[in-house]
Simulated assay, not measured.
Amino acid sequence: MPRAPQTPAEYWDTYKPHRDEGPALRPDAAVFEWTQYPGHGPGAEFLGTPLPRRALDLGPAEGAEAAHLARQGVEVTGVDLSAVQVERARTWWQDTPRLDFVHADAVNYLTTTSTTFDAVYSVWGAVWFTDPDQLLPLIARCLAPGGVLAFAHAEPTGETYGPQRMRGKWLEGRERELTVLRWQYGPEAWTDLLKRHGFTDVDATVLPAPADEPVGTLLARAHASS
């Protein structure tokens, strides 16, 4: 029986284990997807027009969104907790200029970096899996004045907000399943959180799922104070 993950990093190391390393099976970076449904919702323009000069991707996993932006001339840094995901992304996108993947915890990276970004974004990534009261002030510190924070995660279900236990289908059959937390909030709660941490021009909403699909996508965008 496979060894069960002992840490959140190992949890994400097992994400999409069917993927082989190498360019043949890498995801398509032709478009920027914020939702789990291809072609549904906004694209890279959600980060602003023109696109930011320098962007930080928190939790890029396979790195498709980061690669898409880099191909558009954006200097992108992707920070991921999983060494496996970072190595896979580096292998897949090694031919893409202006793109760097860093193996680090998002909070640790934001605490220590001296780089200023025009945009910080997270597509079903670290913003969803990190305490916002810890993460949002660090993001604000690393954003240029007026810079944009944008993120997406699954539409919250039920009436319970805050940290929720998450189970991974890719862990089925293991002798013990490690649970991780994701922070589930609706648009109003995210708006309050972002404003409380100094962000302005907050726009948070739920994009309904396409017909016959069960779960929509929460989309949020805000700006650092000028």
Rank of each mutant, 00 (worst) to 15 (best):
W124F: 15
G146W: 02
L171E: 05
Q94I: 00
L178F: 05
Q164P: 00
Q94F: 02
L143H: 01
D105E: 08
G125Y: 07
H40N: 11
R176G: 12
V76K: 12
V76I: 09
Q164D: 08
E87Q: 15
T130H: 09
S122V: 00
A152L: 12
D118L: 11
Y161L: 13
A67D: 10
W170I: 00
V120I: 11
A67P: 01
P60R: 00
E175G: 10
E155L: 09
P145Y: 05
W124G: 12
V123P: 11
V102Q: 05
V102S: 04
V76H: 12
A67H: 01
T111N: 12
T115A: 06
E65C: 10
A106K: 00
G48C: 09
V102Y: 01
Y161R: 12
P97A: 15
P145N: 03
H103I: 07
W128I: 03
R176V: 14
G73A: 15
T130K: 05
L47Q: 06
L149T: 06
W170R: 06
G59P: 05
N108L: 00
A140I: 02
E62W: 10
V107G: 06
E65T: 00
A89V: 12
F151Q: 01
P137W: 08
P42H: 15
V180M: 05
P132A: 02
G39E: 02
E172Q: 10
E175Q: 07
W128D: 10
A83I: 03
P52R: 06
R88I: 10
H153K: 06
F46W: 12
V180K: 04
F151C: 04
A119H: 05
H153N: 07
D95Q: 13
H153T: 07
F101W: 08
F117W: 12
G158L: 05
V74K: 11
A144S: 15
M166E: 15
A140D: 04
D118C: 06
L181H: 10
